[in-house]
Nucleic acid binder design. Structure first.
Lengths: 226, 226
DNA sequence: TTCGCAAGTTTGTTGCAACAAAATTGCGAC
DNA sequence: GTCGCAATTTTGTTGCAACAAACTTGCGAA
């Protein structure tokens, strides 16, 4: 059991409910909870070392963002994405992340490229170590480092909520991801496009990355048809 | 003071927190609260006739969706959109609502056209009566009736959260809207495009509608340049 | 008059206990 | 062995009181 009341690390600056929310969000993106996992107020409270009110706050907030869903009148679970959900979310991701990356392109700079290169290094390292949760986390950092360059905070927030929805499902396929390493090539392309401040190319790189993830997810889900 | 504990109307089927959330959401879209209005837990609780817990739930949820924002460490207000916010949100709206309308086009039918015609009638009626809040509400119904046809629930949810953010600001310009009635022409075009199941035309109609609203908002905000 | 500080007030947060509803378990009949 | 129902447990919801932090007000000094 973790105690959020201590540990200024990460969860600083806000209320317990806020801290609980952030902690749960990070765990979700890291793939700590699998699709279908049942979230209960008391369990979360116990796990994070807080009372039920902040735990409930976090769950409610996550639920209203779609990161958790109702499976019954009185049960919230980590969403199990169906074929249609996956397809829809991918379509939205392509549109939104495509927009963000294209708008980010003009802000390309040495510093940004270097930062991305370092993040990419951490992804590879985590992949080598077989630590998928860590790789997933750094992968998120890579994408959002670019998206945030555009200076469109509302857009970033919306994209983040999309990642929260697909995150847990992504974890399931990471063994394949580690094998194929499609992401590496796409990220490489992204860095090159950014160096040239080529919006169309940057958008294409990210759209490819998203589509590749979608294809793997489809395969992992058992459906053959693309 | 309204008492949500009674009145199954609209708020049926769920907890008090859920009902409070829906009520506040509707009030926000109807433009009952102006940008900058300060929301306090106790005031909302009093206004809706519930205790502080469900009121707090509603405020938290609205805040996490961006429909309310923090103006200080301990104050949440109805967002006051700046020029940049408005521009960004409009860009996102065009992309997302454009996608939704285009995907909805193939589902055009007699029934849908008729339903839209009726809603349009209610908009005109409310406009004639000078009831902006009502007109705003029916305008939302018009748009979402189309968006929901596409069968993409995640997308609809995301668009709804965008409306929640711009709603209060929209109210401010409705007197101009009532005068010009740009919306009428765009809605007319949308119905025609839907009758022909023309995705591109439907998308164009909605994009125009969004852009027209944005132009008016810019004018109302005092900025001259488009 | 203006600035600063202190007392008082407002307001969000948190923990908790009581309650109701849903889910689960287990027992018994067929 | 299976189905159905009832008792039990689990779990979300709600109201409330205590607390702490932020904000407001007003008085007094310069």
């Amino acid at each position: 059991m973790l105690d959020l009341k201590m540990a200024g690390a990460g969860g600083q600056g806000a209320s317990l409910g806020e801290a609980a929310y952030r902690e749960m969000k990070e765990r979700l993106i890291r793939g700590k909870y699998r699709p279908g996992y049942k979230m209960t107020v008391r369990a979360v409270a116990e796990e994070l070392g807080v009372s039920s009110t902040p735990a409930r706050d976090a769950i409610n907030r996550l639920t209203s963002e779609g990161a958790l869903v109702y499976a019954g009148p009185k049960t919230v679970i980590v969403p199990v994405l169906g074929e249609l959900d996956l397809k829809e979310l991918t379509t939205i991701r392509i549109v939104l992340e495509g927009l963000a990356s294209e708008k980010a392109a003009p802000f390309g700079s040495e510093q940004h490229i270097e930062a991305l290169g370092q993040i990419q290094g951490r992804i590879s390292g985590a992949l080598d170590a077989g630590n998928y949760g860590e790789a997933l986390w750094h992968n998120k950092e890579f994408h959002f480092h670019v998206y945030e360059m555009a200076g469109l905070p509302h857009l970033v927030t919306m994209i983040e909520s999309l990642w929260l929805r697909v995150g847990p499902s992504l974890y399931n396929l990471y063994p394949e991801f580690a094998q194929e390493r499609n992401g590496v090539r796409n990220h490489q392309m992204a860095m090159e496009a950014l160096a040239e401040r080529d919006g169309a190319a940057l958008r294409a790189a990210f759209e490819n990355d998203i589509r590749d993830g979608y294809r793997l997810l489809r395969l992992a889900a058992g459906s053959a048809r693309m």
